[in-house]
Amino acid sequence: MFDRKADLRAYLPTSNLRPARLPRTLRRGGTLISGLATASLVVTLAMAAPGKAVHHHHLHTAAVPQDAQASAAPAQDTSQDTSPVVARMGNLELHADQTQKLIANLNASDRAAVDKNPDLLARVLRGLVADRFVLAQALAKHWDQQPAVAAALERMRENAIMQSYVQAAAAPPPDYPNEADLAEAYEANKSALMAPKQYEVAQIFVAAKTGADTSAETQARNKILAIARELRTPGADFAAIAKTESQAKATAANGGIIGWLSEAQLRPDIKPHILALAPGAISAPIRLDDGWQILKLVDVHPPRQLDLSEVHDVLKQKMRQQRAQDLQRAWLADLVKANPISLDQSELIKLVGATGAATR
């Protein structure tokens, strides 16, 4: 089911509190809802490949060059790790202890999504394993010692040190914000702290990839039309039919129920169909790039005011982030004021001229 509290980041006001954006929308495999904001390097490259429709359950290998797929990554020294092996790719093994550390490094919203959805965790792990596999190959070829890569790593190291130092030097007090601060911020932003209209949606999905052969396409079309006819018979039970006929396994077991979704969480190609339904109504078969959908709008909840208890933790996090940013700007301004920066304009002009001549 949709967890209202877990999605509160989307409802915070967009002025001073600067809420996190909604995750990008998953577009494959029968899913209708938004997915993780975190993507592995290999997954990101696969999604960016021009002119190719990439399915999520294949993303972890789609962008790996052919020679890399054929070769094995150097074996890792895991002799000190006695925890169970969770995943393998070539000679690379990912143990339970390593997996827990990787999951701990996900941002809070992604961790919450993974905790609720084991299938999502499997997709995340595939991407992480692929990343580690590519990293192992690069390190085996001493890629980190290339001048450009070494320079970039040094810049990242310096930035990490500086950011950590400034954050520690200008951190908000541990007790900020207190309950009075939170109550005041809640009242000031109350009009923006609204849960949007919610749609409880159910689906029956029949897989049929775009470009499939004529026989497969005809078979899928006949199946969805037969399901649509069955749904039109008096007393037809959508949930029972979804359990036996839907090929979206994650929702079929629950009678096709996806859960409560806001309009922003709906796939763009699905949204108009759901918005056109009255509560309890069922759509005609809808052809999408991954297959056929029949949708049911189970129920609708109107927008509502969120209570302070519902936004308490997210509001506190946003207030601390904002205070930290304000303190860091003030700290840096005081630092520059106490240590003025001076530039030798004549030498700077010479340097710019020499740089320009070198690039011509």
Rank of each mutant, 00 (worst) to 15 (best):
P74L: 08
Q167I: 03
Q167C: 06
E263W: 04
R111F: 07
S83W: 08
M47W: 10
L139I: 09
P177I: 07
D77S: 03
Q137I: 06
E347W: 10
P279Q: 04
L125D: 08
N107Y: 05
S309H: 12
H58I: 06
I341E: 09
R304L: 01
W260S: 08
N254M: 09
K101A: 11
L12M: 15
A226K: 12
D307M: 09
I341T: 11
E179C: 02
S15I: 04
D144L: 05
L288R: 13
A216H: 10
T359A: 12
P272I: 03
E263I: 04
P196R: 00
D131H: 08
A284Y: 05
A207K: 14
E179R: 14
Q137T: 05
D181L: 02
E187W: 10
S346V: 11
S262T: 14
A62C: 02
R123S: 08
D326W: 01
L308D: 00
F2A: 15
A46L: 05
A202D: 07
A73G: 09
A20Y: 08
T25Q: 15
G255K: 01
G353C: 05
R323L: 12
P285D: 02
I257M: 09
T218M: 11
R4L: 15
E347H: 14
A284M: 09
P147E: 05
Y186L: 03
Y11V: 00
Y199W: 08
L332D: 00
D237V: 09
I103K: 07
F238K: 02
N117F: 05
G211D: 09
Y165D: 09
G255W: 01
E179A: 15
